[in-house]
Design a binder for these strands. Sequence first.
DNA 1: AATACGTGGTT
DNA 2: TAACCAAGTAT
Length: 291
Amino acid sequence: MSLDPHVLTDWFADRARDLPWRAPGVSAWGVLVSEIMLQQTPVARVEPSWHEWMARWPTPSALADATPADVLRVWGKLGYPRRALRLRDAAAVIARQHGDVVPSDVDTLLALPGIGAYTARAVAAFAYRKRCPVVDTNVRRVIARAVHGAGDAGPASTTRDLADAEALLPDDDEFAARMSVAMMELGALVCTARSPRCADCPVLDDCAWQRAGKPAYDGPAKPVQKFAGTDRQVRGLLLDVLRDTSIPVAKARLDLVWSKAGQRDRCLDSLLVDGLVEQTSDGLFALPGEH
DNA sequence: AATACGTGGTT
DNA sequence: TAACCAAGTAT
């Protein structure tokens, strides 16, 4: 038998972090904002931004009315700024087509920009207390170890991963929703990637990985994420200049951030294509929507 | 199915 | 210090 929902949810009740988007009374919009911000960005960096964001844009329609420039400035250095634009686009759809209410239906959520398999189900489960499998990197790792006895999760496969998680959920909606957060929290706090704290694990006795003698991960090597010298770094440097000024800047100013002209120009072009940068009528550059 | 997409903390 | 890691999504 593996992963008793009661054991997990009891552990969660006892040990879970006190995160602001989990507080009682937080709106589905608040949950959605947190989920988007948490995509590839650590909790510690999200917390302050989430508070600022919710104070400024407490509803989808409020965000939809903001300029992309303001949205990108408040997003700041959370990373992957296209998320901020997509969240604003999603907010516009929610405001206009869903009566300013974040949808609770997974397929409706999936149709919104920036919302994929994980986020749609996270909103359904955490905001609307539904029984639906929520699979993020933490859950994948917990299941790989506790259920499959592997050292770590292999490459993601949405269909298989969802089925694995679904099989573990209890029937009751609220109970299943609590089990879903509990698995995520276990992966975040105990069953961590580098040095799992197995001594503190509530399901140690049910863990297939433990039983198998904690074999090392033997799947395909995970691709290494380079950053230094990549277009991602250059785009970040470019955007950093524009976030910092309310006045459009000349290209000569942007040219200062990176010495390789070809790469610099390619990155600026891609930012324009992505709608993260706008060129004014007089040929200057700025964040979109305020000139 | 691979790859691009930011940023910063930890080991 | 370089590599790894962090509540993924879109193409």
